[in-house]
């Protein structure tokens, strides 16, 4: 069973095979949880989303059309569930608008003012400053090694928007991390 492809697992899940769901869960629960956590910034909420996503896999495995990779389909479900939860918890704040955008010019000063001692904390600080949707593109590109057409599908946005978001995210990260990266160079 553990040797089965993602598609084969989904076929078995669609037939009501819980053992296949267990293998599928083991294979993907980490990626689902971590991606949701990047959107929600709350471990309990990310755990809720993980449960909702796997329930949806159980219910909708038969609807997987095979037009994309299973992982892309799964990340798409994860993103939708995460955004739904975010909107439910913060109904007055449209997704993406809650995160600072206008203060990009201040990042370096604020960053220096914090006097963060660890490089990781500095990087985290800069990543957290990104808009949600920009951070997701960075995460999917650099951590999940996802191709940009797949990211477009996961996030339901045009290909050009993926590139634009990456460009903006890169510029903002470089501005925020410029000193750090120069020190490393």
């Amino acid at each position: 069973m553990t040797e089965a492809t993602d598609e084969q697992l989904l076929q078995r899940i669609a037939g009501g095979d819980q053992a296949a769901l267990r293998v599928f869960y083991e294979r993907f629960h980490g990626a689902v949880y971590q991606f949701s956590l990047r959107t929600l910034n709350n471990a309990a909420d990310a755990a809720d989303v993980l449960n909702l996503v796997m329930l949806e896999v159980w219910q909708k495995a038969g609807s997987f059309a095979g037009q994309s990779q299973v992982r892309t389909w799964l990340f798409s479900i994860t993103r939708n569930k995460s955004v739904d939860l975010l909107r439910r918890k913060r109904p007055s704040e449209p997704f993406d608008e809650a995160v600072l955008e206008a203060d990009a010019e201040d990042h370096c000063e604020h960053f220096a003012g914090l006097q963060l001692k660890q490089q990781g904390a500095q990087v985290r600080h800069c990543l957290d400053k990104l808009k949600d949707s920009h951070r997701q593109v960075v995460y999917l590109t650099f951590f999940e090694d996802m191709a940009y057409p797949d990211i477009a599908e996961v996030m339901s946005i045009p290909l050009g928007t993926v590139k634009t978001r990456m460009l903006h995210a890169k510029q903002q990260l470089l501005q925020c991390l410029g000193r750090l990266l120069r020190m490393d160079a």
Binding site: Y25, H29, Y33, Q34, A46, A47, R124, V138
Partner: peptide, 21 residues
């Protein structure tokens, strides 16, 4: 830099594996 931090972030926020199942 991003990969290193995301890996550390993942380590600090372990997946609720068995509890989740």
């Amino acid at each position: 830099a991003v990969r290193a931090e995301e890996a550390e972030h993942s380590r600090q926020h372990p997946v609720p594996s068995e509890l989740g199942w």
